[in-house]
């Protein structure tokens, strides 16, 4: 039983946290690709920017002396989402819209998004310095819920922190809201139509400029949530999301670029693959030692991949997906 609890603590919970972050980021990337047809490399830095917006707001609240039962990062999230969405719109207007108006190729937009990445990264470090900050500005303690498992014969509890619980709830809410928006609202249907065939959507009277703006608003606000959650889970630093933009791309591609549900599935898939690959299986399979004959005992470390190669797992999955099934699990708008 203890082995199972260990598995839940180490794989299920941390995998779900990571998966939520990957999924929220990948939705943004996949929507932008579906509507604007280019790979938005600056998405990782948009996440970092969102996290810093939340950080500034939270610090301001804490400085004003507000004391709340929830972590400050979550309380300011709605405002931070709006600000990040506005910033995303501004970035589009300033850097991508002129290139689109000129009829530039998607590749040019991709390179432009790298320019935006560099500028944002430089600016963030210029303003906030390159040191690591804690998102828990008011010194909130992470409450840990321990679910006692003694009724099932376990000696250790399942432990989960309060921010993690809120993260699950927020992610679930956002996914449901996005689903309703895409399937029920006029605008959501217009977005899907434009992702399928931009020219046809325009001819049939869909306001494509509005759809583009809505895309940036959704992508920006989700990037803010993902970035803030990542900062709450790990710590806040300027190169926070730059390391994570590639797993997110992997998630979006594995799910099928342009496919919002695919991005969610891909996010969790990549996150669990990473977590399982570095998981030490000996911890779970130890009871087998009693059955195995003498001299065949399991080695102390039975991880598939050494921990330092954790990030490469996502890339290997990515490369294999691109080779075997370039359209992803769900057929994306990739042609």
């Amino acid at each position: 039983m203890d082995e199972l609890i260990f598995f839940i603590n180490r794989v299920l919970i941390s995998g779900t946290v990571l998966g939520s972050i990957y999924a929220l980021g990948a939705i943004g990337i996949t929507l932008i690709f579906g509507i604007l047809r280019f790979a938005h490399f600056a998405h990782g830095d948009m996440m970092t920017m969102g996290a810093f917006v939340a950080f500034v707001l939270a610090s301001a609240l804490a400085a004003a002396g507000v004391v709340l039962p929830l972590p400050m990062g979550f309380v300011v999230l709605p405002v931070a989402m709006i600000i990040t969405a506005l910033l995303a719109l501004g970035i589009d207007k300033g850097f991508y819209a002129p290139l689109r108006a000129r009829g530039a190729k998607p590749v040019t937009l991709l390179i432009a998004s790298i320019g935006v990445t560099l500028m944002m990264q430089g600016l963030l470090r210029l303003i906030f310095g390159s040191s690591t900050k804690s998102m828990y500005v008011a010194g909130e303690s992470k409450d840990i819920f321990r679910i006692d498992m003694s009724w099932a014969g376990g000696t250790r509890p399942i432990s989960i922190t309060e921010p993690q619980v809120i993260m699950f709830v927020v992610t679930a809410l956002i996914v449901v809201a996005l689903h309703l928006f895409l399937t029920r609202s006029r605008l959501g249907k217009a977005m899907r139509a434009m992702a399928d065939n931009a020219a046809l959507a325009q001819v049939s009277g869909i306001n494509t400029a509005l759809v583009v703006r809505v895309t940036w608003v959704i992508a920006g606000s989700l990037a803010c949530v993902a970035g803030t959650m990542l900062a709450l889970d790990v710590a806040l630093m300027p190169d926070l999301a730059f390391n994570i933009v590639l797993p997110i791309f992997a998630a979006a591609i594995v799910g099928g670029l342009g496919h919002a549900y695919g991005a969610i599935v891909g996010g969790f898939l990549i996150a669990f693959a990473e977590t399982l690959a570095v998981f030490n299986w000996t911890a779970v399979l130890r009871p087998l030692n009693a059955i195995l004959p003498e001299g065949m005992a399991l080695p102390a470390n039975l991880a598939l991949v050494p921990t330092e190669y954790k990030l490469t797992v996502a890339f290997v999955i990515l490369v294999v997906t691109l080779l075997v099934r370039p359209t992803g699990i769900f057929k994306g708008a990739s042609t």
Binding site: A112, L118, G122, L123, L126
Partner: peptide, 24 residues
């Protein structure tokens, strides 16, 4: 504060500005 480490980041920003201007 931290002028040294901040100034070092300026070149990343400049690089980004240069490429966006060039593309446009």
């Amino acid at each position: 504060p931290e002028i040294d480490s901040r100034a070092l980041q300026m070149r990343v920003f400049v690089l980004g500005v240069v490429i966006t201007i060039a593309l446009r």
